[in-house]
Amino acid sequence: MSDMPTPNPDQANRKLALKLVVVAVVMVGFGFALVPLYDVFCDITGLNGKTRGQALYTAKTVDKERSIKVEFMAESARGMPWVFEPVVRSMRVHPGEQYEVTFLVRNKANEAITGQAIPSVSPGEASLYFNKTECFCFEQQLLAAGETLEMPMRFFVDTQIPESVHTITLSYRMFNISEQTDASVAKQ
């Protein structure tokens, strides 16, 4: 470095500066990479009770010894004129067994509206063991004015779920995404 005389110090400076610019650009990329990394991290740790995507019913055994209380919550977000509620508020389940529950929605507005339900599971660690094999939250719902719909949701709790979990709360919030979908339709 400075102990050795360089033939052209300006060139050396420029070279090092360029390398550092590359580092900075890579770090911008890293900032964006934090988004998928975060999802992976959530997936591993159950952070924030983010639930996983569609699962396959794979459980071979049913643990009849244990019974876990599963609570269901459903709410419409602001600007969402839908009635949205679970038919059953809570139930007791055995890990490994598959269950089906139903949620009711009714569009009270006098126009068609597209909704998207966002799930959240508490406690967060339970989300790792809560598997949905079929869920209305995997897709958007389009309801005509005044339309009523029964939406099924099938799930099972993994037998590996830690002993410390006695209650699982599954909460859905229904968002009005008509504007976003209109915009994307308009774009196409």
Binding site: S76, R78, G79, M80, A109
Partner: peptide, 12 residues
């Protein structure tokens, strides 16, 4: 007023 407006401070 009844339903609020999504993405704003106007609540239902």
């Amino acid at each position: 007023v009844v339903n609020g407006k999504a993405g704003t401070a106007m609540q239902a």
